[in-house]
């Protein structure tokens, strides 16, 4: 019984490690971790602290912004690498882009996916236990 339980736990841990490593999809210029935010149910705001790591090819002025709204998160001057931490909170996936101020160009785009665990949200919750 205990052997079965240990085997099952090992399987759980292995699967969870795999689930977490899938979140770490590196890109060349713009790395984001985690790239996935998991909420319990569809429609819930998903919260996570997202770390953007930028390694640009040249020294310059760069900004991070939301792709859809073009809202600037932050800009950095005269640098080629920096890290930015975002307190992410959204009900849906959001894309972010790295732009070069000099070239007025989008250098990289990344998306933070919002997923949810439960496909069916319980309409009722039964609490009978004894």
């Amino acid at each position: 019984m205990y052997f079965k339980m240990i085997s099952f736990c090992s399987l759980l841990v292995t699967s969870m490690s795999y689930a977490q490593t899938k979140d770490e999809g590196p890109t060349e210029i713009l790395n984001v971790m985690p790239s996935k935010c998991v909420a319990l149910n569809e429609g819930r705001t998903c919260y996570t602290d997202v770390k953007f790591a930028v390694t640009a090819p040249d020294i310059g002025d760069y900004c991070l912004r939301e792709s859809s709204t073009k809202k600037i998160l932050q800009c950095w001057a005269n640098t080629k690498s920096f890290i930015y931490t975002l307190n992410f909170g959204s009900t849906e996936s959001i894309s972010y882009e790295l732009i070069s101020k000099q070239k007025r160009d989008t250098l990289a785009v990344t998306t933070i996916e919002v997923n949810w665990v439960h496909k069916i949200k319980s309409k009722k919750r039964r609490w009978r236990i004894f």
Binding site: S15, M16, A19, L40, V117
Partner: peptide, 8 residues
Amino acid sequence: YPIAQNWV
């Protein structure tokens, strides 16, 4: 708490 995709 959702600890990862599909895990609670």
